[in-house]
Design a protein around this nucleic acid. Structure first.
Lengths: 273, 273
DNA sequence: TAATCTAACAACGA
DNA sequence: CTCGTTGTTAGATT
């Protein structure tokens, strides 16, 4: 379950390692990952050159020189790993792309993932990415912008944060510490946030995500070169810390159900439901 | 709460009485009923001639010679009544239209109603009418069409019938006897209907609505000329008959909550939930 | 009581 | 842990 930090890191690495390479071959073992028939996908992609790789939220955008984008979503959990002629491929994978220099990458989806091919002009019609909210590490994500997003919303703050249409890239892992840092209960209604709570939350989002990016992402996720990140689970403040003491007040952390997801909270620090 | 029979009757009467008349003046006492500013509405409507009046579901469509439509929805309850120079106007009304021959009509909305002005080319963008389902008294509403509508629906049959996007014109009044005649519980899942139940239901829809149209609509609703209909509440089979005996088996009729609406059912005849 | 839209939410499938 | 679809519900509207 990679979230914004892991995807951002991976896209940057892919941009560095793949830019300018020409696609020699593609292997699709799981056609359901695609949005078009395999034959059409192969035809439109083979021989094309990678112009750049970027990311938005949990999506990776591989821009080809043919004005097409390959849009990748790793779903629940997936390994997207680079290989060189010297390295042997992973045993299992659902998708493989090989460049003319015999480097390439494989993707092993654990569960639901997409590799979609969309023309530049049809990007706005691509349902899964067209309505993504702003990236929280984009300079356009200002406190003012954040406040505007919050206005008139009646939902709980956690639902708001992990809804990709509001802000793109926060999932059920990072949201835990973001809410703890802002001292907000996940079910707290957006409309009841004070000025200070709003700006504390804004800061917490940037702090938590940027901290993880600096550390290379979560330690249980692999980057493009198969290396694990340095953000260890021990460093979580409350996430996945059931019954461990709160780092502020030592109250045991609780795991609660919030809608359809689980939340880890300090019942003292995040009491104001 | 006029439904298809009352609206159909009224639109036919309006077509007969208003076609060819030129609009001399309009009075708007409740601007919120409109979709555009009052000044713009007046400008676009004054001097125009009524080409025809028709209806779809609970909506009245007044077509003007300027390729504009005046779309009227009477909401919960409203009197839309014709007047001639001899008759005095109702005391209260929110909307009045006067033709050059000094006839006209007034509308007294009790609660929520619309008078929208939409150009012919923008009809498809008018959210409130563009997605209305087929009219059950339209010849296109065949048994085959009805079956197609039902396929893959997972909702309860009552929700299905009163959802204007499926079929336009059935509300919480007529749906009661329709379900009773078809011997269906309101919460019965659409997907579980047998062939026979489906065709019985289809027939019940046509029977109930056409019967009311023939009788001039419900007795507590007024037509365009202010006359009451001849479909009396006594003739309801189960609707609004709480604790009265079922006309088939004499079991007392029950009033139950089904989602956000009330339903009147015979617990014996409509038991198959 | 009723009509309808919308946002938020839950259940389900892929 | 994702995401879209579908349906349900609560709230708001004048």
């Amino acid at each position: 379950m990679p979230e914004l930090p892991e995807i951002t890191i991976k896209a940057r690495q892919m941009d560095k390692s793949l830019k300018g390479k020409r696609i020699a071959d593609v292997e699709v073992r799981q056609p359901k990952n695609l949005n078009i028939p395999v034959s059409e996908f192969l035809k439109k992609v083979k021989g094309k050159i990678v112009s750049s790789v970027s990311s938005k939220g949990k999506w990776i955008f591989i821009k080809l020189d043919s004005a097409y984008y390959m849009l990748i979503n790793l779903g629940m959990n997936a390994d997207l790993i680079y290989f060189t002629p010297k390295q042997k491929l992973p045993e299992k994978y659902q998708f493989k792309i090989v460049f003319t220099d015999n480097t390439g990458f494989t993707i092993q989806f654990q569960w639901f993932g997409y590799v979609h091919l969309v023309s530049e002009e049809d990007l706005g019609k691509h349902k899964l990415t067209a309505h993504l909210g702003v990236s929280p590490i984009n300079e356009r994500f200002t406190l003012e912008h954040f406040k505007r997003l919050l206005t008139n919303k009646k939902m709980g703050i956690k639902s708001f944060l992990i809804n990709q249409k509001n802000i793109a890239g926060i999932g059920n892992v990072y949201v835990q510490d973001i809410l703890f840092k802002a001292k907000l209960h996940p079910s707290r209604k957006v409309s009841t946030l004070s000025e200070k709570e709003t700006s504390d939350l804004y800061k917490a989002i940037l702090e938590v995500l940027n901290c993880s990016i600096r550390l290379g992402g979560l330690t249980y996720e692999k980057d493009f070169y198969g290396r694990k990140g340095n953000f260890t689970i021990d460093e979580f403040l409350v996430g996945y810390k059931t019954r461990k003491p709160c780092p502020i007040c030592s109250t045991p952390i609780e795991k609660i159900r919030t809608g359809s997801t689980h939340s880890y909270i300090c019942p003292e620090c995040q009491s104001s439901k």
